[in-house]
C-alpha cells in the first residue's frame, strides 16, 4: 500500500477529523476529485455534497458537507467546511425542513442577493436529500 494522506476536516466550531487515510474523494466545484498521497498542491472550493473517505480498501467514512474549501498538498488534505455531519445521521425530517425553508426563502426573495442566498440554501438541501441514506 502506498503512503497515506493526512485528512483534516475542520468546521468553525472544531477540528472534526484528523487522521491518515488512503484516499479522500471530495466534491469540488468543478467536479469530484480524489486525493491520494503525493497529490499536486491545489486549492479549490467545495460544493455541497458527500466526502468519501477510503481507508483499508473500503469506504470507511462518508460525510456530508454544505460547501467549503479544500487545500491539498503532498502530505495532507484540509477541508474547511461550514457544516459537516456523517451521512448516516441525515434524516428525512432534516432535509425536508430545509427544502421547505429554502423554497419559501426563494419565493420571498426580492433582491438578487437574497435570491442567490436562497438558491444556495436550496442546493444545500437538495444535496443533503441526495446524500441521505435510502430506507
Amino acid at each position: 500500500m502506498a503512503d497515506k494522506i493526512k485528512f483534516e476536516l475542520v468546521s468553525p466550531a472544531k477540528l472534526l477529523i484528523s487522521s491518515p487515510v488512503d484516499m479522500v474523494i471530495v466534491p469540488g466545484t468543478e467536479g469530484d476529485f480524489g486525493a491520494l498521497a503525493q497529490h499536486a498542491p491545489m486549492i479549490t472550493t467545495v460544493r455541497p455534497g458527500v466526502i468519501d473517505v477510503h481507508d483499508g480498501g473500503k469506504v470507511s467514512n462518508r460525510i456530508f458537507v454544505a460547501g467549503g474549501f479544500a487545500e491539498v498538498n503532498e502530505e495532507r488534505i484540509t477541508v474547511l467546511a461550514e457544516e459537516a455531519l456523517p451521512v448516516a445521521d441525515i434524516t428525512h425530517d432534516m432535509y425536508s425542513a430545509r427544502l421547505q425553508a429554502a423554497k419559501e426563502a426563494l419565493a420571498d426573495a426580492k433582491t438578487d442577493g437574497a435570491r442567490i442566498a436562497a438558491e444556495q440554501l436550496l442546493s444545500i438541501a437538495q444535496a443533503m436529500q441526495a446524500a441521505a441514506p435510502r430506507h
Partner: peptide, 21 residues
C-alpha cells in the same frame, strides 16, 4: 510552495468566496 499551487476555479473566484467566509 505558493507558485506550485493549482487553483480550481480561478484564484479570483476562490478569493471572492473565501473572503466573506
Amino acid at each position: 510552495a505558493k507558485a506550485l499551487y493549482e487553483f480550481e476555479p480561478s484564484e479570483e473566484d476562490i478569493l471572492n468566496s473565501l473572503l466573506p467566509r
